[in-house]
Deep mutational scan, measured.
Amino acid sequence: GKRLNIQLKKGTEGLGFSITSRDVTIGGSAPIYVKNILPRGAAIQDGRLKAGDRLIEVNGVDLVGKSQEEVVSLLRSTKMEGTVSLLVFRQED
């Protein structure tokens, strides 16, 4: 696979993607993946982020050990017109 650095500018329609966690172990944390890209928002305008990408970092914060809720609040904490920096891991087909 490969790592991608993606910067998304948060506009009025938001970042435009949803996340999910897979393989949750009890008391553990699961990897966070991009669930889908919404028809409006920064992600589809940028065009690089894809469903199935694994989020590794948000704005330089390592997501290991973070819950899905914590990751959502990290993403939401970005101000309007601010930039969210994502490091994602993509499995090659």
Rank of each mutant, 00 (worst) to 15 (best):
K9W: 13
K79M: 13
E69W: 06
Y33N: 02
G60Y: 03
L74H: 04
L38A: 12
D93F: 13
L8G: 01
Q91V: 15
V72D: 14
T20W: 05
V71R: 01
F89A: 13
V64P: 03
T25H: 12
R22A: 13
A42S: 08
I26F: 10
G11F: 05
G65F: 07
V72K: 12
G28F: 10
L4H: 07
T78A: 15
L55R: 02
S85H: 10
D62A: 08
K66I: 05
R22L: 14
T83F: 08
G28Q: 04
P39L: 05
G65Y: 06
G11T: 12
E13M: 09
V71Y: 01
S21T: 10
E57T: 13
T20L: 06
T25W: 04
D62M: 07
S85T: 14
L55P: 01
V88T: 02
G27C: 14
L55Q: 00
R54G: 04
V71A: 07
T20E: 06
G28C: 06
G47N: 04
Q45F: 06
L75A: 01
K79A: 11
K2D: 07
D23A: 05
Q45R: 13
I37H: 00
L86N: 00
G52P: 01
Q68Y: 14
L4D: 03
L86Q: 03
K35A: 09
G82E: 14
N5T: 15
K50T: 05
R3A: 09
D62G: 12
I56E: 03
L87D: 15
K66D: 02
S21V: 08
I32V: 10
Q45N: 10
S73Q: 11
Q68S: 10
R90I: 00
L75W: 04
L8H: 00
G52I: 01
L49Y: 01
F17I: 05
I32K: 03
F89Y: 13
L15I: 09
D53P: 00
S77M: 08
K50H: 11
G14A: 04
T12S: 13
S73P: 04
S85A: 08
K35Y: 06
G14H: 04
D23W: 06
L15W: 09
E69Y: 09
D93S: 13
S29P: 11
I37D: 03
I32M: 08
V84D: 03
S18L: 09
V61Y: 07
P31V: 07
V71G: 01
S18I: 10
I56R: 02
R22V: 10
V61G: 03
E81Y: 08
S21E: 12
S73R: 12
E70M: 08
S67T: 12
N5S: 12
I26N: 13
F89Q: 13
L86S: 01
K66Q: 11
E57Y: 04
V72E: 08
D23V: 06
V64H: 07
R48T: 06
L55H: 00
V24A: 13
G28D: 06
G1L: 06
E92F: 08
S73K: 12
L49N: 01
S18E: 15
G41V: 01
I6A: 00
G82D: 13
L49P: 00
V72W: 09
R76E: 10
G60C: 04
L8D: 00
G41A: 03
I6M: 04
Y33L: 11
A30C: 15
E69D: 12
Q45K: 13
L49R: 01
E13N: 08
R76I: 07
T83A: 11
V24K: 06
E70A: 09
Q91T: 13
V24I: 14
G52D: 03
D93W: 04
I56D: 08
D23M: 08
T12C: 09
V71H: 01
T12N: 14
L4N: 01
E13T: 08
V58T: 02
E92W: 14
M80S: 14
F17P: 01
G60S: 10
A42L: 02
E57G: 07
K66H: 10
R22I: 11
G65M: 05
I37R: 00
E69V: 08
D23H: 09
K66S: 06
F17R: 00
L86W: 00
V84P: 02
K2E: 09
I6W: 00
S29D: 11
D53L: 01
R54Q: 13
G47P: 01
G65W: 05
T12I: 12
Q68V: 14
V61Q: 10
E57C: 07
L49W: 00
G52E: 03
G41R: 00
I44V: 09
G82S: 13
I6V: 10
S73E: 15
S77F: 12
I56N: 02
L75E: 04
F89W: 12
R90V: 01
D93Q: 15
I44N: 08
V64M: 08
D62H: 09
R90S: 04
S67M: 08
E92D: 15
S67F: 04
F17Y: 03
A51T: 07
T12F: 09
G41S: 02
A43Y: 00
I26G: 12
T20V: 05
R76V: 12
L75Y: 04
I26Q: 12
R54A: 08
T78R: 06
Q68G: 07
T83Q: 09
R90M: 01
L15E: 01
G47R: 05
F17K: 01
G60P: 01
G11L: 10
G65H: 07
R90W: 00
S77I: 11
S85D: 10
D23P: 13
V24H: 11
V61I: 12
L86I: 09
R3D: 10
L75C: 06
V88Q: 01
G14P: 06
I44E: 14
R54D: 05
K9R: 14
R3C: 13
Q7V: 13
R40A: 04
G14E: 05
R90T: 03
Y33W: 10
L75N: 01
E13C: 05
K2Q: 08
S73D: 10
V71M: 03
K35M: 05
G14R: 02
T78K: 07
I6P: 00
Q7A: 13
T20P: 01
Q68M: 07
D62Y: 05
L55S: 02
A43N: 01
N59E: 06
R40T: 13
I32G: 01
T83N: 08
V88D: 03
K9P: 07
R40P: 00
L87N: 14
D23T: 09
Q45A: 12
I32S: 03
I19W: 03
G14L: 02
G52S: 02
P39S: 11
R90L: 01
V34D: 05
I6G: 00
T12M: 15
L38Y: 13
Q45Y: 06
E69I: 07
Q68A: 09
S21H: 11
E57W: 04
R22C: 07
G60W: 03
D93K: 10
K79L: 06
M80Y: 09
L8V: 05
A51D: 10
V72L: 12
T83K: 10
R3V: 13
G82H: 10
A43V: 00
E92H: 08
L38E: 13
T83H: 09
E69C: 12
R48Y: 02
Q45S: 14
A51H: 05
T25I: 11
K50G: 05
S73A: 14
G60M: 03
S29E: 14
A42E: 03
R90A: 03
D46M: 02
G11A: 06
V64R: 12
E57I: 04
G65S: 08
E81C: 06
G52K: 04
I19K: 00
V84F: 04
L86Y: 00
Y33K: 05
A42F: 01
R54F: 05
L4S: 03
L15H: 03
R54V: 09
I37E: 00
L63S: 02
L87I: 10
S29C: 13
L15Q: 01
D62P: 14
E81I: 04
L49S: 00
T20K: 05
G11D: 06
E70L: 06
G41Q: 02
G14N: 07
S18Y: 04
I37Q: 00
Q68C: 14
I56A: 05
F17T: 00
S29K: 14
E57H: 06
K50Y: 03
G1A: 05
G11W: 02
D46P: 01
V88M: 03
E81M: 11
S67K: 13
K79E: 14
L87A: 12
S85E: 10
P39Q: 07
E81R: 09
K2Y: 08
R22F: 10
K9N: 11
I32N: 04
L49I: 04
K50D: 04
D62K: 14
R76C: 08
T83E: 09
L4G: 01
T12H: 11
G41F: 00
V71F: 04
L63C: 11
G60A: 04
N59M: 03
L15V: 04
Q7L: 12
L87S: 13
V24T: 13
S29V: 09
R76W: 09
Q7Y: 14
E81V: 05
I56L: 13
Q7F: 12
A51Y: 04
P31L: 13
L87C: 06
E69F: 09
I26C: 14
K66M: 14
G82M: 12
G52Q: 03
V84L: 10
N5F: 14
V71C: 14
A42V: 04
T25L: 09
E13G: 07
G28I: 15
N59P: 00
A51I: 13
V64D: 10
